[in-house]
Design a protein around this nucleic acid. Structure first.
Length: 441
RNA sequence: CGGGAAGUAGCUCAGCCUGGUAGAGCACUACGUUCGGGACGUAGGGGCCGGAGGUUCGAAUCCUCUCUUCCCGACCA
């Protein structure tokens, strides 16, 4: 992408409404603009990042055998009346009336919708287990939206729902998600801590929150140092095998948020206990027949008996992750994207637009990057050097290639790694090799 | 939903107390000088001072109502 053609409105000053760092940077780096309280428009750069995060979530879901569906944003009140949540949910649910005066709502979650589908379509144990997921916009009419996209009213969420014949099957489904979540966050460069959680209004017996560590996080986490050193499961996880031992290696370590942490009961001491700030980016539940019962998700088992399905539901705040990753990864100059979610991998800076040598070199490198499949943002604007460097840092492109007359004189360009600011020079003859290295990683 | 604050140019803000008809910096346009980490000069463009009502000869400024946004708390992916 050429910068001269890109819609990327960056700001030198911080808009007054933004208080926390991710919100400020998302506005300054031109990722989003607020449309109303807690409601945002995603501009091209922000939307690229959002889709990359979404894609990682999708890939890791697919690996477990979960299948993607797309459920509606607008739901009928009927099914919520059946589950009993229409009255329970309160004012956070955005309720709407259509032209026929029928009650509808903008979905805050989708247990009712999916359970209704499954209740209608699955009638035999032979069709189980099933795990269906959905990446869709949700709406919760928060009293006080804040922290930009981290606590918006409209948010993009991956939610899925497992359906099993018995509790053992449901626990296996739960364990699959437990491990898939660890992989998902790890691929985004995040350290996620699974903590035993209250089940809240959704209800259930078994539940974990996934908290990523960021100094500016909203809640406090207490956990075993060993938990932070456990490596996330690799890509070779066999989701059909017995997952309990692997899950146990994680859940056997102490981890609690400030609400649940009890200093007296905590088994850890001294250096073993880590106290950190964190942001909740996922939540998984097992809740048995809470929805299958009232919505009639009942099938026939192998022995001919009627069985009420065992369910679990699993959420990841996809749009929240954009903010959360920035909270976890930034400096005074701007965002530092992990490569896996960066809007572009390489930023190419032409320091002297109009100079034949600089232009030809940039065009050559730009074309080579594209041919190699390395995503590149080419800053071809006729701006001062400082402004271009500052923008690249602000937007957080992982690698910056700087082409200027001073370097070209010696047949060199400069490479800067955003994460640590480390700069090095590479000879023009070695650029192709450097690109190949990026393409491979 | 309780408590607090703020709405003036695209952004950050001054002006309001003490009413007299709109300002600065950044951004934008043109020209010139500059040009390896957010330059400088000159000349420009841009505002129904959130909205409605009131007081007054006259309201960004005073009064009332309203809408919006932000912060603290309670609540939450």
């Amino acid at each position: 992408m050429r910068r001269t053609r890109l819609f990327l409105p960056t700001l030198k000053e911080t808009p007054a409404e933004a208080q926390i760092v991710s919100h400020r940077l998302m506005l300054r780096a031109g990722l989003v603009r607020q449309s109303a309280a807690g409601i945002y428009t995603w501009l091209p750069v922000g939307y690229r990042v959002l889709r990359k995060i979404e894609q990682i979530v999708r890939e890791e879901q697919d690996c477990t055998g979960a299948q993607e569906v797309l459920m509606p944003t607008i739901q009928s009140a009927d099914i919520w009346q059946k589950s009993g949540r229409y009255d329970d949910y309160g004012k956070e649910m955005l309720r709407i009336t259509d032209r026929h005066d029928r009650e509808i709502l903008y979905g805050p979650t989708a247990e009712e919708v999916i359970t209704d589908i499954v209740a209608n379509e699955i009638t035999s144990y032979r069709d189980l287990p099933k795990n269906l997921y959905n990446i869709q916009w949700k709406f919760r009419d928060e009293v006080r939206p804040r922290f930009g996209v981290m606590r918006g009213r409209e948010f993009l969420m991956k939610d899925n729902y497992s359906f099993d014949l018995d509790k053992a099957g449901a626990v296996h489904s739960y364990n699959k998600m437990f491990l898939a979540y660890l992989r998902t966050y790890s691929r985004m460069g995040l350290k996620a801590v699974p903590t035993a959680a209250d089940t809240g209004p959704i209800g259930g017996e078994l539940s974990h929150e996934f908290i990523i560590l960021a100094d500016t996080g909203e809640s406090e986490v207490f956990c075993d140092r060993a938990l932070l050193e456990l490596p996330a499961p690799g890509p070779d996880v066999d989701y059909e095998a017995d997952l309990q031992p692997l899950v146990d290696t994680w859940t056997s370590h102490y981890a609690a948020t400030d609400e649940k942490h009890d200093a007296d009961a905590c088994p850890l001491s001294g250096d073993q206990l880590v106290t950190a700030r964190g942001i909740e980016v996922g939540h998984i539940f097992y809740f048995g027949t809470k929805y299958s019962q009232p919505l009639g998700a009942i099938i026939q088992g192998p022995d001919g008996q009627q069985v009420t399905l065992e369910m679990g539901s699993y959420g990841i705040g996809v749009s929240r992750l954009v903010g959360a990753i920035i909270e976890a990864s930034h400096d005074d100059d701007g965002i530092i994207w992990p490569e896996s979610v960066a809007p572009w991998t390489v930023g190419l800076i032409n320091l002297k637009v109009g100079d034949a040598d600089c232009e030809a070199t940039c065009e050559r490198i730009y074309a080579a990057l594209q041919t190699a499949g390395v995503e590149v943002l080419y800053d071809d604007r006729d701006e001062r050097a400082g402004g271009k460097f500052a923008d690249m840092d602000l937007v957080g492109i992982p690698w910056q290639l700087t082409v200027g007359p001073r370097g070209l004189k010696d047949g060199k360009i400069e490479v800067k790694r955003r994460a640590d600011g480390e700069k090095s020079e590479i000879a023009l003859d070695d650029v192709e090799a450097w690109i190949a290295e990026r393409a491979a990683s």
